[in-house]
Design a protein around this nucleic acid. Structure first.
Lengths: 246, 246
DNA sequence: AGAAAAATGCGTCTCATGGACACAGTAAAG
DNA sequence: CTTTACTGTGTCCATGAGACGCATTTTTCT
């Protein structure tokens, strides 16, 4: 990595950090700002909700707000930062943790994450690229850890567990956005290929046929349940180890 | 959806299908083609390996091959199709399934997938967007199903299990690409924020501290093991159900 | 009050990218 | 040897991110 590109990265990161975490001094002199970074983010979100992430261009955002494109750059260093703001606003604050067993708390956490993110499929595109997490993202993290309260795992393992669960949620949302429903064009294009080459992919063809017949739609739940069960097995193992040491 | 956009989608899909699944008639008259779609894909792969997906532009690919940009369009409808070819070539064919217990077979499958995809981080970016799967991608699928051979699950559940495992693998690769290692700029930018706001995110701070101290690096393995354990629990449940019915 | 300083709104330019189109050259088929 | 399908590529256009400069507006300081 060149010194140049490292400096660039640093500059970009501190720009994002300033916006997300508000280290900016409140300007004094000069004309009143007509906009705020938040308004810009909201406009961008509105556009993304209608036309997806690719529709979010500086021009469109400016049109949405009724200003000139270049005016936006007074409030936001560039497109990257707009996306960072969009993401953290879209995530929102996680809901309060109710006090119950870690199994149901974690399940609820993952389910809520799903509900929240699947309302804005573009948000997972953003969250899955390298980025500095914002306040809301960290709050979700904190909430997840809190749900695992008395679970007998190390800190690092809890982080891994959260990564596993959130990764699953996002992967499912992507899958749904891709439209692997039998009606989608994608499935329509794949069907004849699969049919023609059934010999080469016998298990795949069989599995899809069986899955369509029973009309399954529980990939999200299936994954969450298996993961919880897997964590439960580890926890049980740990407890057993503890007892035998005694 | 408008009729226009549906037709566009159809046309794009059939272009990809022709390339990936070779339904093209071999041309006869005229000059010999100087290139093949495969060469183009390989050039694009070389570029992506060096500079990531954004560096893959038609211009760069043409430069790499020593031809003019517009020459590429004789062999490939557009950028989308180049990416589809890149992906399927990058995936390669999955390795032969050895005959052993489904647990180790599935674990090996996921691990191989990891090794293969983490060599080319850009491939997960491609595989995670809506696309028509190519021969190699389907072969991986088939291999995964074959690994689950005698596992007492329905077809749909097996699909869900594969989605869960592959989702985890991809999520881990993304995480590593983002560089959440303590040396990365991203971590360096996050650290002071976390420190300053330790009060708001106590569990997060604690978990990261604990995880750094023990130097954990097993997120991939942790997830795979938990998932296998979770599937195992389900399988055991099924078998118990079967026996009690008898 | 008046001047200086600081901040804003935004027009203009540049550069990269994907892709449409046309035209000339080439090699096989009749 | 003409016809014809197919190839290589130069030209042109639309769209997007962003640098830069300038006029304008407020606040602060003398």
């Amino acid at each position: 990595m060149t010194a140049q590109s490292r400096d660039d990265a640093q500059a970009r990161l501190s720009g994002v950090a300033d916006l997300l975490w508000r280290t900016r001094p409140p300007g004094r002199r000069g004309p009143k700002p007509k906009l705020t970074p938040e308004q810009i983010a909201d406009a961008a979100i509105a556009i993304a909700d209608r036309g997806g992430l690719p529709a979010v261009t500086m021009q469109h955002v400016a049109d949405e707000l009724g200003t000139a494109k270049m005016a936006l750059y007074r409030y936001v260093p560039g497109r990257t930062e707009v996306e960072a703001l969009m993401l953290d606003r879209a995530l929102g604050t996680p809901c309060e943790p109710e006090q119950d067993a870690w199994q149901s708390a974690l399940t609820r956490w993952a389910t809520k994450l799903y509900e929240c993110a699947s309302r804005r499929p573009w948000s997972i595109e953003l969250i899955q690229r390298p980025h500095l997490p914002g306040p809301n993202e960290l709050a979700w993290f904190e909430a997840g850890l809190s749900a695992m309260g008395e679970l007998p795992l190390e800190g690092g393992e809890k982080l891994d567990a959260l990564a596993m669960l959130s990764g699953h949620v996002m992967s499912i949302i992507r899958q749904q956005a891709a439209g692997l429903t039998p009606e989608s064009e994608l499935a329509a294009a794949l069907a004849p290929i699969l049919e023609q080459r059934a010999g080469e992919y016998p298990l795949t063809v069989a599995a899809f046929a069986q899955s369509e017949k029973s009309g399954r739609d529980g990939a999200l739940r299936f994954g969450i349940e298996r993961m919880i069960a897997g964590i439960e097995a580890l926890a049980a193992e740990r407890l057993r180890g503890r007892q035998s040491k005694r």
